[in-house]
């Protein structure tokens, strides 16, 4: 198992304290747990009151929303591009 680079965008960068961090994880669910353990400020931004991933947080693996992959069970490794976005919009 090797580190996955997780990139943050918009106001999640402030919570994470940087644009990206390295995480040792095999799937997205464990990645989220590790992220919040290492960066507790991300907990407020990413988890709801039940401790579940907020609907407003969008995680993408190789340019695909995990909702259209295998959700929190989506596998990741160091070859994958992982990005975490808060709810954003524009036009």
């Amino acid at each position: 198992m090797t580190g996955v680079t997780v990139r943050f965008f918009a106001n999640l960068r402030e919570a994470a304290g940087s644009k990206s961090v390295q995480v040792e994880a095999e799937d997205v669910g464990s990645m989220v747990e590790i992220l919040i353990e290492k960066h507790p400020e991300l907990g407020d931004e990413m988890l709801d009151e039940k401790g579940e991933l907020k609907d407003t947080v969008k995680i993408m693996v190789d340019g695909r929303n995990i909702d259209f992959l295998e959700g929190l069970h989506t596998k990741i490794d160091k070859t994958k591009k992982v990005a975490v976005f808060p709810l954003i919009a524009g036009g």
Binding site: A10, N11, P86, L87, I88, A89, G90, G91
Partner: peptide
């Protein structure tokens, strides 16, 4: 997001 970063946040 829109007031912090503008539409270009996309």
């Amino acid at each position: 997001a829109l007031s912090s970063f503008g539409t270009n946040v996309l």
